[in-house]
Design a protein around this nucleic acid. Structure first.
Lengths: 185, 185, 185, 185
DNA sequence: GATGAATGAGGTTTCATTCAT
DNA sequence: CATGAATGAAACCTCATTCAT
């Protein structure tokens, strides 16, 4: 039932999505949706939180999967793969997070902004450790924003381009940040 | 009158924007809006095209401003400066293009996708000329998508961060693609 | 279970009362309410009839309690005391009868009107026996309506005024109709 | 348009009244009702205030119409005639005030309670000046409540009894309070 | 026998859109 | 030409009511 909501919200946007369509897609009746999820706003909030948590969990699990003794590049690679694998495997959730939730009034935009800020901080920390990285915190933050945007754009690209893979997206981004690295598996 | 529409559409989104608010902000009456612009959909289309054309013109003019004999890096710098100067100077138009138009059903998303494709092709061509660039067209396209996304994200960052400048955004992006270059003025 | 219904109906009114709240207050589930009382309309009818019968029984028992050889005034006093004792002891039932049932479409209003007519006829008969009473039946009926209204208003007053007693209400009404009588106990 | 609302509210009650029926009876469309009167609640408030003001104005004008040098009884008669003339000439408004507004949640019940309290205070003052009246303020208030209730009941009686007149209602009530008085014109 | 789970019908409210002036 | 006045269509939400267990 939440799946249906994520799909409709992700495709149509909050305003254009109708509870009727969500209910229909879920194969239930409108009142049932209201029984479980009290209002359209609340339903959207639940979807948003679920997708945010899922994305976060995927990325963290990717970071954890990297071998403990591995290089920084290896860890970055794991995170990127986890990120793109999640977004390509869950395009509606990704659209909800990246596109729809941000075009909406304060409570929602703030929530996704917080998630994005968390990610940006993480990227900033990765950048700062690099020897050739930016020298001021401000520059690091700006660069992190650029990289996050690049990742987001690649996620969209992978979702709209036929036979584009998460692997391809990850490799593209890694080659941008580490031009000298040999191509990964 | 279009200014008002761009502002309201850019801030509220297509569905949440009401013709009433647009007319009010423009200082005219609703029927007048319908007289000049036949429907909400058409009004949005006109806004979208105007902003797309304005952005394109700004970028092209930036490209033309570069001295004929200058280096490629110099030309890139001009384009970036033109792009970020335009987006920071016209945040509502930028929000309309980048955020609102893409969250919407096919006619609009396709239009902005076309604009984006044009830009991506241009970036692809720039990339391919570089000696250390990607070796396959597919890889070049993917990288171009990443760079366009980085630029978009920086435009948003510049619009939401106090005292962030177009210059700073351009410098950040250029440093990402040309790490060895000395900082530009 | 009917107690719960009377309470909710008496406080909220027919339309504003929800079967959910009634079932909850009764400590049972909604389908059980429907099993015993077929519909909201029927449930209301049953409540209405029960309260009407209870009020009628209370008044008649009051009339019967008066000593057989007593004066008319004494009998009136007994009836008044019985009436106000019942309404103050059962405010929700009284509200249901006097306020909610009458604000509602024909089947209910008619039923409570019948009860009221019965009471009015009784009062009319009391009035007509008095030597100084009205001379025409029509005038007697009108006066009876006035007195019934006075009693109803006093019942409401007693229910909303802190430390107002049935005794006080009865004394007030009796003094209105028999100004020369000494105050009762 | 308010007339239609008063009529529907007065007959059906707040909850049972539908904006559809009000609009239909007024001969306009639903959105127009919302254009002029923002919500059902606000519409009801406006109706309530209008009827309260009209009733108050009618009664005050009746009081003012009495000849300056006339007796107290004469003034009372004028007020009663004004009251009953208004209620019989405006049965829906009377039903709205007396029946529907009081069965409804706090904002409305309080408003009509204030009106009723004003009237009750006025009656109390009339009572207290009479030589044979009650001796304590509490008793006077209680008696005033009884008389107000009697008047309300007579108003209902006059509205539901064929060929009952305001004159008849006023005479009935006056004879209740002043049994010795000769019948008025 | 009692209930958790589900729905049909209807109510309030909004909004893009159009005439008559 | 410009607008005040008006509406059709559709959205969100609620509630009396019923099955399958």
């Amino acid at each position: 039932m939440l799946d249906a909501a994520v799909r409709v919200f992700g495709r149509r946007g909050y305003r254009a999505a109708s509870m009727e369509e969500i209910a229909e897609l879920a194969g239930v009746s409108k009142p049932l949706v209201y029984l479980y999820l009290n209002s359209k706003e609340y339903l959207f909030t639940v979807c948003l939180r679920r997708e945010a948590a899922a994305l976060k969990a995927a990325v963290l699990s990717g970071a954890a999967d990297a071998e403990p003794g591995g290089s920084v590049e290896r860890r970055i690679w794991s995170v990127l793969m986890a990120f793109f694998t999640h977004t390509t495997g869950n395009p509606d959730g990704w659209a909800l997070l990246h596109r729809q939730a941000r075009t909406h009034g304060e409570p929602f935009a703030a929530e996704v902004a917080a998630l994005r800020a968390e990610l940006t901080r993480y990227v900033t920390s990765l950048i700062t450790t690099a020897p050739t990285g930016p020298r001021t915190p401000r520059a690091a933050t700006a660069l992190a924003h650029a990289l996050v945007g690049a990742a987001e754009s690649l996620a969209d690209w992978a979702n709209t381009t036929p036979d584009a893979t998460a692997h391809e997206a990850a490799r593209t981004l890694l080659r941008l940040t580490h031009p000298s690295l040999p191509p990964h598996d």
